[in-house]
Write a protein that binds this DNA or RNA. Structure first.
Lengths: 196, 196
DNA sequence: AGGGTTGGAAACCGATCTGTTTCCATGACT
DNA sequence: AGTCATGGAAACAGATCGGTTTCCAACCCT
């Protein structure tokens, strides 16, 4: 019984883990048991299971971003900061318990794009794209909007490969992102941008 | 009541559609009702729901591949044949009822990579990679193995974007695949390969 | 026409689903 | 000490889950 945090915090944490590990179809009973919270309390804190899905996804956002994104103290060139995301992703995949990007996986399971959980997933992806976009603008990339989307797409593609346990050389995400940045002329030397 | 095909065929078709549209957690009752087949017959034809999941995925393979891959009568250069896959995917996404690659989606929902359905998904992805690989060899690409995996990854990334309904300019898969082929020196003119 | 196979309809099993409710132990505040 | 809010345990509701079984109508072949 984890009785350290508030029932709400315990629920959000257990939900984040169990919805990810077992899918959003896991029962509310099992979830509450894992969180050490009664169903009564759960339904006082959240209107429905669907709301809990969305809120647990949203609450995981900041720590997941902190896990993937380089911090502001990392003052390397934009290209390296971008590639850091893919390196961190590789590390997650290599750990073996990776079941895909939690946001994409949840959206896949929910099917309905208007489900509150799907909306959170969409926002998270936009957040990742925005990060890439900011860095690309810093690097002076020619078409940062398109390139940011392409990088996000590679991120999700690398996730999908891990889910299906396809043959992976490791680092395929980093490799591909780097190839794309190369093609766009985004170099590690800050000033060598705008290459055409 | 679709009574045209055999119960087995009706089950496989209904399973392919409903497992995709509603997820693998849809009930056997609903599935049999949609197929116009009794549960008794279903459990005579398939050992379990899990087996039906796997077999319906496997049975969809050939037609799905025919939908995506260019036929042997398409004698354009390898690069164009490769890009055809991404163009066809774009058309599927544009239709609006796209819920991701059925194989990846099912693998995501099943979680367990040893589930027979996950095994089928893995084989399908390998099949796609193999197609890319064959074409790249034909084109004389330098590292067809890696590039084929990268293209498959882009394919899955484009699927994921469609699932989360992320902002999409349309054609982002084609665009990115083309960029990667450009970087690898795979041109439309058959002989202009091996560019360094 | 008669015998046997096929297969759908539906009841049934125990388990689980989301969501509600009752009851009671605990702890805080005055 | 006595009151009150918090929240866990657990029963409950009606529906559905995967899977099995019974029963019977419709068809096949001769």
């Amino acid at each position: 019984m984890t009785t350290s945090a508030t029932p709400r915090e315990r629920l959000l944490e257990a939900a984040g883990e169990l919805f990810y590990r077992d899918g959003v179809n896991i029962g509310v009973d099992a979830l509450c048991k894992a969180a050490g919270v009664s169903k009564k309390s759960m339904y006082q804190l959240f209107r429905s299971k669907d709301e809990l899905i969305a809120e647990s996804l949203a609450s995981r956002g900041p720590s997941y971003q902190a896990l993937l994104h380089p911090g502001p103290e990392d003052e390397r060139p934009a290209r390296d900061r971008i590639l850091t995301v893919f390196e961190r992703q590789d590390e997650l995949v290599a750990r073996g318990d990776f079941l895909g990007c939690p946001y994409v996986s949840t959206a896949v399971e929910l099917k309905n794009p208007e489900h509150p959980g799907s909306v959170v997933a969409r926002h998270f992806k936009q957040h990742l794209t925005d990060f890439f976009h900011r860095e690309l603008v810093k690097a002076g990339a020619e078409d940062p909007g398109t390139l940011a989307i392409q990088l996000t797409m590679i991120f999700d593609g690398a996730s999908a490969r891990a889910v299906v346990r396809a043959q992976d050389l490791g680092g395929i995400g980093v490799l591909t992102a780097a190839a794309l940045l190369d093609a766009a002329g985004v170099r590690s030397t800050e000033l060598a941008t705008q290459a055409g």
